[in-house]
């Protein structure tokens, strides 16, 4: 088991290193003079030279790369040209909001997608299967921003059930910062008012983000279950009188979700990407809206840091996905 984990982590090293090289080259090579670009149009030649020296741009490229690696390892990601604060600080502050949103939509899309997929497989070519097909088409066809705006129009503007944007109403004081995760901090601080309000704010963006992934997860689950049901061991388990609910939700499902887990891993990446749009629409104070702001203001340091961050998250999710596969199917563990 430990060997399996270490192996998977080892496999992630080359791709992460590649990512570092690419981001490094993007900083150093894309603008002809990065120091001038950093300093802005109004800078004097002396200021530019100072910056060049400060960031080691007058050193050989190899030395610069080593310095760059050292800074990354110390989580020194530079300073945002827009907020004038260390990028690492900004990210640390905003990442929990994004993760909260992503986990909420994962929870929704997995929690609904898996049962829908199982039902569609059991009621093959009947009503639940039909519903899933409609959902799938919608999940692919409907643009995220349109869906988000429709939800806002209906549930906030029309019905006034849910807040329009943001993470917490201005009238609600933020709970004491313990973990950075708003919902968690409200719980830990027993701030039920903040918890309820944060939850209400979370619903619409999470639903928007979950929508696309939901149909994918349901489709993969459905295909997996249909496939598993063909196996001899399902007939055997029925013949031995396994209780139907346990047969389906435990013995069949465990065999069926391999593809679903891969899909969930991919979905996580998709959620980070999709989160950019959703965070912008719902004014969600996370990494996504930070990125949009950076792109609009040309804040290169932030863009590169976010690229790095997303790469690291992808690598971690990949390792986790493999790990879950290993836990689900013991044959994989014995093979490595």
């Amino acid at each position: 088991m430990l060997r399996f984990v270490l192996r998977r982590c080892g496999l992630a090293v080359p791709s992460l290193f590649g990512l570092l090289v690419v981001t490094f080259l993007m900083i150093r090579l894309v603008p002809s003079d990065p120091a001038a670009a950093m300093a802005g149009d109004a800078a004097t030649p002396e200021q530019i030279a100072l910056l060049r020296h400060k960031y080691g741009l007058d050193q050989p490229v190899w030395d610069q790369f080593v310095v760059y690696l050292g800074r990354i390892v110390r989580l020194d990601l530079g300073e945002s040209a827009f907020t004038h604060r260390p990028v690492a600080t900004d990210i640390a502050q905003r990442l929990p909001a994004t993760l909260e949103l992503i986990f909420a939509s994962m929870f929704l899309s997995v929690g609904l997608g898996v049962p829908i997929g199982v039902l569609a497989a059991l009621r093959h070519n009947e009503m639940p299967d039909f519903v899933l097909r409609v959902l799938s088409v919608l999940g692919v066809a409907v643009a995220t921003f349109w869906f988000a705006i429709m939800l806002q129009l209906l549930f906030s503007m029309q019905l006034h059930w849910l807040p329009l944007r943001g993470q917490l109403a201005d009238s609600v004081p933020r709970p004491v910062n313990i973990t950075g995760f708003l919902l968690l901090d409200s719980l830990l601080g027993r701030r039920w008012d903040a918890f309820g309000d944060a939850l209400a704010h979370l619903v619409l963006p999470a639903v928007t983000l979950a929508f696309g992934g939901l149909s994918g997860i349901a489709r993969f689950t459905r295909a997996g279950v249909l496939d598993t049901l063909q196996n001899d061991f399902v007939f055997y388990e029925r013949a031995m009188g396994f209780r139907r609910s346990r047969l389906i939700w435990r013995y069949v499902l465990r065999n069926s979700v391999t593809a679903t887990v891969t899909q969930i891993g991919l979905l996580f990446g998709g959620l980070i990407a999709g989160g950019v749009v959703v965070e912008a629409i719902f004014d969600w104070p996370g990494i996504g809206s930070y990125t949009v702001q950076a792109i609009l203001t040309g804040d290169r340091q932030v863009m590169l840091s976010v690229t790095l961050l997303v790469g690291v998250i992808y690598a971690v999710v990949n390792i986790l996905t493999d790990l879950v596969h290993g836990l689900l199917d013991p044959r994989l563990l014995d093979r490595t």
């Binding site: 001899d232 007939f235 055997y236 013995y251 065999n255 199917d329 044959r331």
Partner: peptide, 19 residues
């Protein structure tokens, strides 16, 4: 099933749940 009639399937390799 099982309590009064036990079943031995044809293919021992495919009849046990692999996971």
């Amino acid at each position: 099933r099982s309590s009064r009639i036990g079943f031995i399937p044809q293919d021992p390799l495919m009849s046990l749940n692999p996971v």
